[in-house]
């Protein structure tokens, strides 16, 4: 067996793959947070619950309507995004003039309520969700075995992340978003309905979380608490990358997944804490985050 630095290559690549998978979810989730923060100036603590809701939509539409993974991948972001639109219209829009703390408390409270409701009905043990038929099995790459579904997760997460980046940084619609992030009053005085844009942005960011939730369902099981576990790490990722930077969120998400995987190989004891250690260091050296603009 080949080994690298005394580590069997199978184990190394295996952990790197797990790192990339986790990184795919970190990237999708921190991207959604960055999009929302950029436009609404709210740190969306409901994000983990919305990720969980995405997974549950996949589970429920399969269970009750017989709709498969691919359909779920399409309708979960729409449905969960719609709940986001309602939350923004009912609650968040009242908070923009107030201190950050209010948005944080509100979204945190909503997360607790949503998770509580799901736990009440579905317990906390987790429900199984099958890998879609088309993506069962895997490829033997020689140096490792690559399950098809995991390859798909990495690929699709990259597509969604880069697609979002492209729309925001390179299109007309994205120019409206960037401009409204900088100076919403002036953009509105040009005749653009900025409040509606803010609502849709929140719905979109929440939809990204739901996509991540559907993709996670076959890997991690569907559980009311699945969002709570991952979102803590994702907030650390966002702090490291810098709130509000689109590319920063994507790159940091994937990079930290990989670093976590590598730590599992070389220093397993630290694998659960490495991201938080990096966060502490980044906060000391660059408080605005690696890609953040100091304000």
């Amino acid at each position: 067996m080949i080994s690298i630095f005394g580590i069997p290559s199978q184990a190394l690549f295996g952990q790197l793959l797990i790192g990339l998978i986790n990184g795919s979810f970190y990237a999708l989730l921190s991207l959604g947070l960055a999009v929302i923060f950029g436009m609404l100036n709210i740190i969306n603590f409901t994000h983990g619950a919305q990720y969980m809701m995405g997974a549950f939509v996949a589970y429920l539409v399969l269970q009750y309507l017989g709709l498969n993974y691919w359909v779920a991948l399409l309708i979960a972001p729409i449905l969960v995004g719609l709940t986001g639109v309602i939350i923004e219209r009912l609650f968040l829009k009242r908070l923009y003039q107030l201190d950050h703390l209010y948005g944080l408390l509100l979204t945190f409270g909503l997360a607790l309520i949503i998770q509580g409701v799901f736990r009440n009905y579905y317990g906390s043990s987790g429900l199984p969700y099958q890998v879609p038929e088309l993506l069962r099995g895997g490829q033997n790459l020689g140096f490792m075995f690559l399950p098809n579904y995991r390859a798909w997760v990495i690929f699709f997460s990259l597509v969604v992340c880069l697609g979002t980046w492209f729309v925001i940084e390179r299109t007309r619609l994205g120019a409206y978003l960037r401009a409204a992030t900088e100076n919403p009053t002036l953009v509105r005085a040009f005749g653009i309905n900025v409040p509606r844009m803010i609502t849709l942005t929140y719905g979109f960011g929440v939809g990204l979380a739901a996509i991540a939730g559907v993709m996670a369902a076959p890997i991690y099981n569907v559980s009311p608490l699945m969002g709570e576990d991952i979102i803590i790490v994702v907030f650390a990722v966002v702090v490291i990358g810098g709130m509000g930077s689109i590319m920063g969120a994507i790159v940091t998400g994937f990079a930290l997944g990989l670093i976590e995987g590598l730590t599992k190989v070389f220093f397993p004891e630290a694998s659960n804490t490495v991201i938080f250690v990096i966060m502490a260091i980044v906060l000391l050296i660059r408080p605005a985050g690696l890609f953040g603009r100091a304000t």
């Binding site: 007309r172 120019a175 409206y176 401009a179 992030t181 900088e182 100076n183 040009f190 005749g191």
Partner: peptide
């Protein structure tokens, strides 16, 4: 003036609908 820093000149020019 309200020129947007995150937009290039062309994007600034084409921004108002």
């Amino acid at each position: 003036r309200g020129i947007f820093a995150s937009l290039n000149v062309e994007e600034n020019l084409l921004l108002p609908p």
